[in-house]
Amino acid sequence: MSDVKTVFGSLASFQKGGIQVIADDPKNYVFSNVFDVASKAKPYERVAVGKNFEYVIECLRTEGTSPWYTADHDEFALVMDGMVEVELQKLGPSQAAAGGKDGAILVKGDPGGPRMGRIVCHRGHMALLPKGNAYRFKSARPGVVIIQTVQGELTIQRWAEICETRSAPV
């Protein structure tokens, strides 16, 4: 039996690090914590915690059932805390995101196509959210998912609220 202890975070238990500045501005590091962000977010707000030109990492508090989303590019969901079910379904006519559109959009109504299947994910599991299809999340208890995606109309940016602005020894 190994005595090793790998430390993962969760909504219930996380400990942030920090920035000790020598000659810099803490804001340059855009430092936040996904559990901290999710603990203060409403269910399924897509809060950007990373941004690199048009690309973002969105942080979602998973709680209950999300709306149906779709995107014109692949996205990837990584469960950081909790158990999350991903439902996938084909879209009906005129439900798809416009060709080349960035980021996720809400599907109008329920998806009109056939069901594709489900994925039950626990912490550390990554699911493909395939381009041009509908997906939604279900989570019986609060959890955290991060999504690798492109900045879109649903992306929320609240950097001043979530990011570290102080220098402090850690």
């Binding site: 993962f8 942030k16 690090g17 430092f31 914590n33």
Partner: peptide, 9 residues
């Protein structure tokens, strides 16, 4: 910069 589980920078 000290980063712990869940920190992003």
């Amino acid at each position: 910069v000290v980063m712990r589980a869940g920190d992003i920078a």
